[in-house]
């Protein structure tokens, strides 16, 4: 199956077909999710209206971690099978993941001001997410630091796999350390500890963010493949 997708033309064809479907899901679920989260869901009894921050903050944080795992997954496929498409996908994932991480940090900071009374605290969750952001930046810089493109790809892939160690630290940082950040309330062993009126918009937003990620990923990957084609053509023309 992995070899099946290694053919860029085949990938392009699938990506082209998949793109409008994902786009539709993304736009649809984000719009309904926003309607539910801004209008339908009740204000929190403690946090009142500011709880609505959750619907943009929490999915962004999930996506920040999800993108990193995807990045490391693509990177290992690249290293093991020398997979061209995996390289393209990994390269296209990194900036999107960095954006989600930035979004999580920024919305969290905006939420922290009214709730905790400060924009930023140096607790374990915030610090580890900041490290995640720096890892994304390091990946992108390392990728572009070599004259030989494939060396950059492989070096950056190894870095991203090393950085995976940070993901469980982010996930469990709220359980291992006492922090201002609240512990997990959705993904728990004994079911979510959150009322369905708030869970529904949250899930909708998460679905929306995920399909938004896939949508942008497909656009970026297609653009990247076309760019490489142009590059190859240029080299061929220069030789003639």
């Amino acid at each position: 199956m992995i070899n099946y997708f290694a053919n860029p033309t085949r990938f392009l064809k699938i990506a082209k077909g998949l793109q409008p479907i994902v786009a539709l899901i993304a736009v649809g679920s984000i719009l309904t999710g926003l309607y539910y989260s801004l209008i339908q869901s009740p204000p929190d009894y403690q946090q009142s209206e500011t709880v609505r921050m959750m619907y943009v903050h929490v999915p962004a944080a999930w996506m920040a971690m999800f993108c990193y795992v995807a990045l490391a997954g693509f990177s290992s496929v690249l290293l093991i099978w020398r997979h061209i498409v995996a390289d393209i996908l990994a390269k296209s994932t990194a900036p999107i993941g960095a954006c989600f991480t930035f979004l999580a940090l920024a919305t969290g900071s905006l939420w922290g001001k009214p709730m905790w009374g400060t924009w930023w605290v140096w607790d374990a969750r915030l610090t580890s997410v900041l490290i995640l952001f720096l890892l994304y930046l390091g990946y992108m810089v390392l990728y572009n630091a070599f004259d030989d493109r494939s060396r950059g790809a492989r070096a950056a892939a190894i870095l991203s796999i090393v950085g995976v160690i940070n993901v469980p630290i982010i996930k469990f940082s709220v359980d291992w350390w006492n922090t201002l950040h609240q512990p997990a309330s959705v993904i728990k062993m004994d079911g979510p500890a959150i009322h369905s009126s708030m869970l529904t918009p949250l899930i909708l937003m998460a679905v929306g963010y995920t399909s938004l990620f896939i949508w942008i990923l497909l656009i970026r990957a297609r653009a990247e493949l076309n760019l490489q084609k142009v590059h190859a053509l240029k080299i061929r023309l220069a030789k003639v």
Binding site: G138, V141, L142, A145, R151, G152, A155, L159
Partner: peptide, 15 residues
């Protein structure tokens, strides 16, 4: 990782 990269010193600290 940085062997053979451009501006390797600054890159090393970043990663």
């Amino acid at each position: 990782l940085i062997l053979g990269a451009r501006r390797s010193g600054a890159l090393l600290s970043l990663i």
